[in-house]
Amino acid sequence: MSMTGVLRPGFAQVRVLDLDEALVHYRDRMGLELVEVAGDGRAYLRAYDEFDRHSIVLREADEPGLDVMGFKVASEEVLEFYAGKLRAAGLMVSTIPAGEQPGLGRRVRFVTPTGHAIDLFASMERAENGPMIDNPDLWRTEPRGMRVIRFDHCLLYGDDIDATAAVFRDVLGFSLTEQVVTPDGEETIAIFLTCSTKAHDLALVRYPGKGKLHHVSFLLESWTDIGHAADLMTRYNISVDIGPTRHGITRGQTIYFFDPSGNRNEVFCGGYQFYPDHPVRTWTADEAGKAIFYYERALNDRFMTVVT
């Protein structure tokens, strides 16, 4: 698949209880650039290696969680094409006008069967100080904090993950890369979807509720950077869930931790490359410990139940 449809995760708008605390976390500890705090109070941030203007939006609210995840598509024509396909599939589709987030074009919004708001968009302004493209150095100035490279994916928790996955696969052209099923194969517990050659651009886990955020994930360069991130988490008393460790699923090396409002973050590196001719990798639930935490080989209650 040459990528002519949905390109990649573009942004996540996350609710936080205290914007100042959140900025210390996302800007100073994780190393995102603060693009602006806009008039309505939302903060817009971007990782150093991202070309688009922003990828993380923080909105102060009295309940943390995910407002919306946005995916960038290849063109305005593609955006219109998917809007039609989503409507034809029976989904409620609405339009968010250009400029609702600064620098962001028109968005097509739908709500998944698991209750998550998903936006598609084709246009976002380029970052003012984005990655160099002429005789490009690695970066303009050395990355800060955990040195996150980009916003990479989200894991969302909800009830009918099969129906949500069907929207992404059948309507938006995503591929299933990996899954966890019950030993009898009757029920899907976790689903990993890609619109690219990444092992996942979106993950779904079954949970008796709607619209939950498990984590927002950011790419790091290396296992060494994972160690550096872990050093910073201890130095600055960041709430750690688990890690450094590795996933069996996707093979990514990882740490899970929480922002100051309790939204889970991940920093990870590695993982395999996926091509659309690859078969689906399947884990059975009795091996879920190894699938999720390859070194510990056991799940913890917190990973399965703590969400925002």
């Binding site: 209880l17 709430s239 309790g262 703590v306 925002t308």
Partner: peptide, 10 residues
């Protein structure tokens, strides 16, 4: 112990 940030209710 859950998120330690006032978010999860555990």
């Amino acid at each position: 112990v859950g998120c330690r940030g006032g978010g999860c209710g555990v």
